[in-house]
């Protein structure tokens, strides 16, 4: 059964499955340890006692490297794999990780599980144009005002639902490992309960790429002391699992996304829609404007009615409104000698052959009015009767009427018999 149609075959809203769209995808990072083998140290605490265990990060050694792929590989809590940045990239320098989702997704949450202490400050951004421009999604900082010129935990109103807020939650240094940051895109947004009817929030949760910028490291404050080298080798960003929970964006017109011929992820559009996000009507289905499907209304696209005489049509808003928002399609290039917005009557010089349906290829026949006996070439649409000159008769005006005889004049071909 197709989720996009009910058991009677009627269209209904359908949405792809909820997935972790980051899983298995490549993540670009601005810094990864081990390009040249180097030391890093892990700090553990027991009461007031602090210990450092140092290791080597070496990109050329599978047992010692921490590549970006570990961000989105299978997250095995019993065998954590962690991506790790180089050491001590401290504010104002930052480390950025960027994930391309491959197409538009409606993001529900972004979560990061850390192997290091969580950052003192970090920001999550999204792009809607495949990385051309970026929009802030959320800030985390113990110093919101100072780091991001944002108040901490500002209230979100209907007027600023598309604004990123800054919060100081999840910014403490502990736990030193395993800390989680999870950002829910709709949390605290007033229109979240009515998401279906909120284009603002639908736009807000839509993303093609996610970028996380780690802006400031937490430290114990020993990075500038005399033997600071070991201390600085303990400060880096390390994440074991980056998740981006959401659904492939298909505007309610597809139940799944597939790879197209070029390997791009696209929606498997139903309801006569097309485009990577099912965001327009497919050709020839312009009888009403495209709309996103809702829980109550599938809003499928409807084919133009051209009685099989045209392959193309266009939408006309005026006609649509005049029709009470029923039909706005206008057929283009009616063939088989038909005309009208639905190719539903015969064009000038032709008349209906009522023995055939209007959708028949030969539904319109040429008038065939006599070149001399008829006063014009256009005949009656339904009877085929041509306009005859005085004294002339016949459906094509090719004979003199009773009481008349043919003359030599093409102007008055039939004259009364004296």
């Amino acid at each position: 059964p197709d989720p996009c149609y009910d058991e009677n075959g009627n269209p209904r809203r359908c949405i792809p499955d909820f997935v972790n769209s980051a899983f298995g995808k490549e993540v670009r990072t601005s810094s990864t340890c081990g390009k040249t083998p180097g030391r890093y140290c892990l700090v553990t605490e027991k009461g007031d006692e602090r210990n450092r265990n140092c290791h080597t990060c070496d990109a050329s050694n599978p047992k010692k490297y921490h590549p970006p792929a570990y961000l989105t590989d299978l997250n095995n809590p019993h065998n954590l794999t962690c991506w790790q940045s180089e050491n001590y990239i401290q504010y104002p320098q930052n480390v950025t990780i960027t994930l391309s989702l491959g197409k538009k997704f409606e993001v529900t949450y972004v979560s990061l599980q850390f192997c290091s202490p969580r950052p003192e400050s970090m920001a999550i951004f999204k792009s809607m144009d495949y990385g051309k421009s970026w929009v802030p999604f959320q800030y985390y900082s113990a110093q919101c005002r100072k780091m991001y010129t944002k108040p901490s935990k500002a209230t979100i109103t209907k007027q600023n639902e598309q604004e990123a807020i800054c919060t100081d939650s999840h910014t403490d240094m502990h736990p030193l490992s395993g800390g989680l940051i999870a950002f829910s895109t709709l949390d605290g947004r007033p229109s979240a309960h009515d998401f279906d009817n909120s284009p603002v929030l639908q736009d807000w949760v839509t993303a093609t790429d996610i970028k996380v910028t780690f802006s400031r490291l937490h430290t114990f404050g020993d990075e500038n002391e005399d033997d600071s080298e070991q201390a600085r080798d303990s400060y880096f960003y390390a994440v074991s699992d980056l998740q981006v929970g959401g659904r492939c964006k298909c505007n309610g017109h597809a139940s799944r996304c597939v790879k197209d011929r070029d390997g791009n992820l696209v929606c498997e559009c139903k309801h006569n829609t097309s485009g990577p996000e099912c965001d327009r009507c497919k050709p020839f289905h312009y009888d009403r404007p495209w709309q996103r499907a809702t829980a109550r209304e599938a809003n499928e696209c409807v084919a133009c009615n051209c009685n099989l005489h045209a392959r193309r049509c266009r939408f006309n808003m005026e006609l649509y409104k005049l029709s009470g928002r029923k039909s706005g399609g206008v057929c283009l290039n009616c063939r088989h000698n038909t005309a009208g917005r639905h190719c539903h009557y015969c064009k000038e010089g032709y008349y209906r052959d009522l023995s055939k349906t209007i959708s028949h290829r030969k539904a319109c026949k040429a008038c065939d009015c006599h070149p001399v006996g008829a006063a014009g070439k256009t005949c009656n649409q339904t009877t085929g009767q041509c306009p005859c000159k005085d004294g002339v008769t016949g459906i094509t005006c090719n004979r003199c009427a009773k009481g008349y005889q043919q003359s030599r004049s093409p102007i008055a071909p039939c004259i009364k018999i004296p």
């Binding site: 006599h370 070149p371 001399v372 006996g373 002339v392 008769t393 016949g394 090719n398 004979r399 003199c400 009427a401 009773k402 008349y404 043919q406 030599r408 004049s409 093409p410 102007i411 071909p413 039939c414």
Partner: peptide, 24 residues
């Protein structure tokens, strides 16, 4: 009684050359 169809060869086109159908 059916009247014969108009006979195109009988018409005098002297003053109506521009009206004369191609096949006449």
């Amino acid at each position: 009684e059916v009247m014969p169809t108009l006979d195109m060869t009988l018409f005098d086109w002297t003053d109506y050359e521009d009206m004369k159908p191609v096949d006449a």
